[in-house]
């Protein structure tokens, strides 16, 4: 009973993960400029990776593999936004702008 439930959960997570990864790959193609594409790409690194890794964790059961997978996820969640930030910073720094109107630099909190 329990096993079946876990395996269904794992399947659901994997399917959702694959669907999301496809979705955001399409977003990567559809969005009009670099910064918007960045939203599509960055995402697949977070939730999509999380769902697939969790799906695998449920398949593996509680073992050393689980711990390793969780470490992978943790590191991915630390490093991938950092890489995204560095890339966005580099583009901004290099003077990559989509159009001048979008540069709204007003801070109203």
């Amino acid at each position: 009973m329990w096993d079946i439930l876990v395996s269904y959960c794992s399947d659901a997570l994997l399917i959702t993960g694959s669907f999301l990864s496809l979705t955001f790959a399409i977003g990567l193609l559809r969005f009009p400029d670099f910064y918007t594409r960045m939203h599509a790409a960055g995402v697949s690194d977070t939730l999509c990776a999380g769902l697939i890794v969790l799906g695998l964790v449920l398949q593996a059961g509680i073992s050393l593999v689980t711990l390793k997978l969780l470490f992978i996820l943790l590191f991915l969640w630390f490093t991938s936004p950092t890489a995204s930030f560095a890339l966005a910073r580099a583009a901004h720094r290099a003077g990559y702008r989509v159009s001048e109107q979008e540069e709204v630099a007003s801070s109203n909190s």
Partner: peptide, 15 residues
């Protein structure tokens, strides 16, 4: 001079 990069790097390097 980037706080974010510096912080994450220092966190990750031991691992």
């Amino acid at each position: 001079h980037h706080p974010v990069l510096r912080y994450i790097a220092r966190l990750m390097i031991p691992f």
